[in-house]
Design a binder for these strands. Sequence first.
DNA 1: ACGGAAAATGACAGCGTTGTCATACCGAAG
DNA 2: CTTCGGTATGACAACGCTGTCATTTTCCGT
Lengths: 348, 348
Amino acid sequence: MKVTINDVAAMAGVSIKTVSRVINNEPSVRPATRKKVMDAVAALNYQPNLAARNLAGTRSYTIAFIYDNPNAYYVIDMQNGILEACKARGYELLIHPSNSKSASVHDELKNLVEHSKIAGLVLTPPFSETQAVIDTVKSLNVDYVRIVSAAAAHDDEENCIQVDDSAAAYDITQHLLGLGHKRIGFLCGGEEHVSTHGRLDGYRRALEDAGLPVEESLILKGEYSFDSGVTGAKKLLQSDNPPTAIFASNDEMAAGALFAARLMHFEIPEQLSIVGFEDSPFSRQTWPKLTTAHQPNNEIAKCAAALVLSKARGKSAAENGKASKEAGIQREFTPTLVVRDSSGPAPK
Amino acid sequence: MKVTINDVAAMAGVSIKTVSRVINNEPSVRPATRKKVMDAVAALNYQPNLAARNLAGTRSYTIAFIYDNPNAYYVIDMQNGILEACKARGYELLIHPSNSKSASVHDELKNLVEHSKIAGLVLTPPFSETQAVIDTVKSLNVDYVRIVSAAAAHDDEENCIQVDDSAAAYDITQHLLGLGHKRIGFLCGGEEHVSTHGRLDGYRRALEDAGLPVEESLILKGEYSFDSGVTGAKKLLQSDNPPTAIFASNDEMAAGALFAARLMHFEIPEQLSIVGFEDSPFSRQTWPKLTTAHQPNNEIAKCAAALVLSKARGKSAAENGKASKEAGIQREFTPTLVVRDSSGPAPK
DNA sequence: ACGGAAAATGACAGCGTTGTCATACCGAAG
DNA sequence: CTTCGGTATGACAACGCTGTCATTTTCCGT
């Protein structure tokens, strides 16, 4: 019925141990033998039994994805990316939704790692940026990769995949500047997200580099939510001297801003430009479609998973090509500007 | 380091087999013995090793969640529900995104089931409603539960969790009727979704029961998308005799309809009522917030997982309380009306 | 108090793989 | 042609648990 290592060994005319060596890429197998085995593997469509591997071996074949993000689009994208990386390398994925603010994270993670024989952890924001979580993970002596906004990498770059929010925000702001906008409103995301600060920073730098003053009254605190976008935009647009463009810290807020602007009878983009960030499906579900920065979450997640897997493998047996393996993995991402219909030349 | 069944056995002063019996809830263990073992389990915080269980036993401790749905909110809700059910019973979840339209679904599923020793499958629409998929799954001789719109259960009720779209749509329509609306536009979802037909059916029945004519010109084909909502609403509202209310087949379309209506300067809900379906986060990200039908996806998924697990268990050893176990699981859900701000009395 | 059936318990073999260690083999040097 | 040093290969135990079946204990009727 189910094909095991024994079947392969029999067909190839070698011992099961040799088959094991081949499928694990261990040295000390003559090329001719290796080929015989690989042919048999292919012929029988053999796939090693994960349970047996986990049980017998010292290493693990499952990694865990820990998330704590209310944004379903984000989570799904990430998850799919990780899944791809796992599948490609024959690993299993353990999904673990959690709560970075809960007091029991420490115990929860500890329990997870110690009981489930896990090869590594992939963490996404805000989980990945919470100090208590980072401390716990480090103390657990387990491989991990944190997907974080660049500033949150601190002195832990080797375990981070960084997203350069600041650079992307800089690009977006520059786009607006290039369209002739001089007064650009900025709607901040939640304080607790590192990305919030990165995006604001990019906005500031772009203005400064363009020799324009940063008007603090145009920068409004907020949350990464639709309502927050509505409120913020209203406030900006009702002021005596409203901006000609609004940079919302994410697409959801931008959708809210768009909505508020419409209610106030602004023509978009003729009288007012609005841009978002993230390129979530939100940005295509507005009218007009949003100019935004595309963040390749799927790709980011794939790299994060690949990185954690290469770490886990590096530690085991071979130990040889470790450095070279990690080398091929992209570790910094800068979301790229996507110009759609919500931004246009500044009105006279 | 890691506590095994041996440690528990030693502490309780019994054989490992007895411990095994206790943790698997098998009969033929004296209450006193059972207690000793359970105390030891608790004291040591023992958790059976899944890999070993999977390897040794005939039964499996992992179920698979197969989805093929572009709606991230939907998928995440479902996934979380399934995860809860799994965790509660010590099962593992294998996530398997797929494509119901792909020609290779058959091989893909076959491979999944045969290689991964899986206790059962949970399928969501549109995957769960695709005939080719259903046939494949049945031929695979594996336990499964399909989450489907009621009409898609056919003669396979014992393996379905049904969502009564028709009844819910009936309720929504009745709500509108109760507000005095006589002419209600209806925006259909995609043809390929069974839910589309169920929702339309509910709308029709409600009108008929109220003794009102069903005007075919008020029923527009569409897709479950924002743009489709925009287009449909425009068409309805530009007609000579526009309806006083619009029933959009899901929240995303309703958001689109709302948008179009606003552009055309309709006051909502004073001049026009708009309702959605699903109660997705969308419905709270519009202004005004949408009246809709709440579909408890998390709960539905939990029941689906519980059902598939009880099936899988039923087949094993005990075979006793099978019927009683399944009995407690809810298998039909009717989304419930949630009245928010987008619906109001019909204008004079 | 005793036999016998049923209930409770345990010994042991395997599940499919990896790790350890012993053995067989190979080519080069003497 | 033999020996040496390493490389290639295999035998076997072990991973933590469950299934099978033998054994012990319990409890009942007499």
